[in-house]
Write a protein that binds this DNA or RNA. Structure first.
Lengths: 227, 227
DNA sequence: TCCCTTTCGAGAGCACTGCTCTCGTTTCGC
DNA sequence: GCGAAACGAGAGCAGTGCTCTCGAAAGGGA
């Protein structure tokens, strides 16, 4: 990757970025469903067919946006982690939750893109899995680095779960007790689920606004983990 | 609603049902995103424009499908409830979880329709809220009717949450302690979130298959509620 | 420097979509 | 029986993703 590149390469890179930028703008304003290749091209002053020199199709453009969204959420999480480096683990945990929710509320369409209904017939390519793991990894980092109060063991994992947890622990958090890891996983799901419920209006009319339920759930999960 | 109706009314009712049926078929096979009014009309052998005599547009047709999906999920929940009428509350709780998951796995597009990303610019009409409450109400029914072991109170609800919980309790489960109600709400979110994660592939490669995590989470939430 | 290959942008075009409007026909209620 | 309402079909509009072709521009080897 030398700085010396042909004009063509530089133009290509820049245009690719501009296309993604404009697509991102449209995503934020009208959502993934309504994202139109032609509209993107129109806004950029180019023919719609020219766009296919840069992205093989709508799906590939969406995939690029998905990766960006995952990465942005990952950045937000890492930033929250770094900003609370010396703090109490429980506070770090809650800070992470708040950061994720704030980002999702500020970027609802991006959140829906990554944690909502996948596009039909769309299988997430390999490139998306690494960025996707950044939020759960950040959550796990808090748990892994913290001295944990002992907690009641709860129900015993059965069936394939013990091995799944053992494999996960071996890869991500060696030494973490299985039941703690299981709780971390369900906490992650709870975090995402709660944000989704709030964003998609499932709590309107009952727990609305949902900010205080969110904070309560963060603390509840922290308790369950022994943070 | 007399049995005597004009031929027109009967034809209208029947056609409305047939349209919904065909739309449902397409929903199940290609998903909500790809559901096409023209394709529905084509399959039914009518002009696409004729369809607008029965549904004002794609959104209204989707709304009808949403209501149907909520109702079907509600039926499944009620059936699970009725089928375990005399059983231990904890078993009823787990049966409800299993029933919901089974339905979602059998009808992934329907699940996505109601608990996935809403159609952009689409605000759920009033008609959908009642059917939508049936699953959470079924979950709550188990908790309400059961003798609960005392559980540690956990973090105290703050801000608006106590009043929100009090209002909810007054309407749905008078006498239920606020922290139990809060846990029931988060359990509901966890149930839906976990199903969504499994269906949308967020657990592929880590906890996969997710059945045992699901069962574990059901028991975990039952524990937390004191069931 | 010339030339051949690759890359690129534009335009036309295809097969779709949701939706509207019009225009005969059928059906209903009086 | 007749007027009004409901209905089905067709044409048409504006939009979509995507493909193909064609001429222009840029790149690298001789």
């Amino acid at each position: 990757m030398p700085a010396i590149r042909t004009a063509r390469e530089r133009a290509r890179e820049e245009l690719t970025r501009e296309i993604k930028q404009e697509a991102r703008r449209q995503l934020a304003s009208v959502g993934a469903q309504q994202l139109s290749l032609r509209a993107v091209a129109r806004e950029l002053g180019m023919a719609s067919s020219a766009l296919y020199r840069y992205f093989a199709g709508r799906d590939e453009l969406l995939t690029a946006l998905i990766i960006d969204a995952y990465d942005e959420l990952g950045d937000v999480a890492d930033h929250a982690l770094a900003g609370t480096a010396g703090a109490a683990p429980r506070d770090r945990w809650c800070a992470l939750w708040t950061a994720a929710r704030d980002w999702a509320r500020a970027n609802p369409h991006e959140f829906a893109l990554v944690y909502g209904t996948p596009v039909p017939g769309y299988a997430a390519p390999r490139d998306t899995v690494e960025p996707a793991t950044r939020l759960p990894l950040a959550l796990l980092a808090v748990v892994r680095d913290a001295p944990l109060r002992p907690t009641p063991p709860g129900p015993a994992p059965r069936g394939a779960l013990p091995e799944q947890l053992a494999a996960l622990a071996a890869a991500l958090a060696p030494g973490l007790p299985p039941h703690v890891l299981a709780r971390a996983v369900t906490a992650w799901i709870q975090l995402v689920g709660l944000i989704g419920f709030e964003l998609h209006g499932h709590l309107v009319g009952s727990i609305d606004p949902a900010g205080d339920l969110f904070a309560w759930t963060a603390e509840q999960t922290a308790d369950a983990l022994g943070l």
